Computed example of a mutant assay.
Amino acid sequence: MSTTTTTPPAPPVADWLDPSGMARDPYPTYERLRALGSVVHAPAIGRYLLTSHASVSAAERRPELFSAYSETNLTMVRALGGRPMLRKNDPDHCAERSSINATLRPRTVRDTWSPGFSHTVDRWIDHLLEMGPADADLERDFAAPVASSNLIDLLGLSGCVGVGDMRRWSTDFIDGIGNILDAPEVWRRCEQSQAEVGAVLDEILPRLRRAPDSSITSHLLHCGLPDEIVRANVHLAISGGVNEPAHMITNMVWALGTHPGQLAVVRSGEVEWGAAFEETARWLSPIGMVPRETTQELDWFGTRIPLGANVGLLLGSANRDESVFDDAGRYEVRRTARGHLGFGSGVHMCAGRWAAKSAVGEIALPRLYERIPTLRVDPARAADWNGWVFRGLVSLPVTW
């Protein structure tokens, strides 16, 4: 699992890997990949994939070997119109990450942001109820608007951005970050959203310079970061700040709704909602893969990875690793999901995970089932899943 003076064997090759099939359901592919080994070469996507929990978590602890910075794997940079902190190594990454850590710590989230999260949740439950049990779609009518509204507040954009625009920008940026097949229409949408967000920032950055507030944008601005870095990291926050919380809302409702015994355990109080949040993040990882690049030729878990190789850390696969999680393919809210990699790990762990856990696991889900006790997945209308680099429900019809 380090540099070596002898040449280890090349990793097994998954020449059968189908990215479009993974977008429908990546978990059968993850199981096949883990059976091949902890490192697998996937020519179809030009990457060496780390498949096991041990290989992924070890790579996250060795950024000097698996670099977040790359001059060749630039989908995130292109999607966001600049290089955000997630595609940098320390000390540059640390300087940018520390500028927003204060506003996203658990205590700050609880004291500063949670009251607004609660108001937003009730407002959109009202909207969901207005849609009615025959037409309601949890993603469209609740999850995406809640996540968008919360992020508008966190970024300090209240009053100048609507939930529809925020949701669309996030979708465009996420699609771009995952655009490993280089679809031109995806890049066109990214560029359009970059221009629209840029126009909003042109308006609010001068105001925040004069009158700082507690928002993420203000913290980035007042840490002395150059304007282009502030903008790239606002784009980064938009990408994950809607996508991941919205997916966690729908993923939890789908998981609990298709496992009614598990829902009963949580609603009885035997298991806390926060524990169900963590198990859902493990079982249905909102982030499926994160990119890295090797800084030297490596002997990693007994196989050779060349210098400068594009590497994919398969968080979704690692979270179903049977050597770490007993009966890993089973959804079980009573399990201790500690150690899951649903939001990454190490220095690049998702900065917003505590805000997401508060907004979703401690506020949105309990309140949703409190106000709509008979809420359930609608068996008469099909749910729609999409993605594997980022994965979640893009439509979840519900009824009550």
Rank of each mutant, 00 (worst) to 15 (best):
T250G: 04
L341G: 00
D202V: 11
S358M: 14
Y30K: 05
K357R: 15
P366A: 09
M1T: 13
I363K: 03
T217F: 01
E272Q: 14
P212K: 02
A211P: 01
P11I: 07
C190V: 07
A275M: 11
N89V: 04
T6G: 08
S2M: 11
V40C: 07
S52D: 06
D182C: 09
V311I: 10
G159S: 06
V253E: 00
P379A: 09
L65A: 07
E362W: 05
A199L: 13
H53Q: 10
H93V: 09
G198N: 07
Y369E: 09
W385Q: 10
R210C: 12
V197L: 14
E96G: 01
V200W: 09
P306N: 09
R376E: 11
R320M: 08
C160T: 15
T3Q: 11
L298H: 01
L298W: 03
T5N: 11
E203L: 11
D327C: 10
R207H: 11
I287L: 11
W113C: 03
T303S: 15
L201A: 05
D182I: 08
C223Q: 14
Y369Q: 09
T29W: 14
Q194M: 09
A144P: 00
P373I: 07
R140Q: 12
T250H: 03
R353Y: 14
V360F: 05
A147G: 04
D202E: 15
N101C: 08
N319P: 08
N386E: 13
S158F: 02
T120V: 15
V121S: 02
A255N: 10
V253R: 02
W385T: 04
P63R: 07
D135I: 05
S67T: 10
I45Q: 06
L393K: 00
C350D: 06
W169R: 00
G37A: 08
G308S: 08
A309D: 06
P291C: 04
G162V: 05
D135A: 14
P26I: 04
G116F: 12
R87M: 14
P286N: 05
D141T: 04
A54E: 15
G302S: 08
M349I: 15
A102D: 14
F301E: 10
P19N: 06
A199D: 14
D202L: 10
V394R: 13
D321I: 02
H127L: 12
G344C: 08
S218W: 05
P11G: 07
H119M: 11
G308A: 03
N243A: 15
S317Y: 03
G257N: 08
E332T: 13
I305D: 01
L74T: 15
F343A: 03
N319A: 09
A42R: 03
P379I: 08
T336W: 14
C160R: 12
F301R: 05
P212Q: 04
R168S: 12
I100E: 03
D378L: 00
T171R: 11
D153F: 06
G37S: 10
S239D: 02
C223D: 15
H41M: 06
A359L: 13
R107M: 11
H340T: 07
G82H: 02
G329N: 11
L341M: 11
A10E: 14
T29H: 12
G344Q: 06
C94P: 01
A59T: 01
I287A: 13
L128F: 06
P145N: 05
G162F: 02
E362S: 12
T103N: 06
A35V: 06
R78I: 04
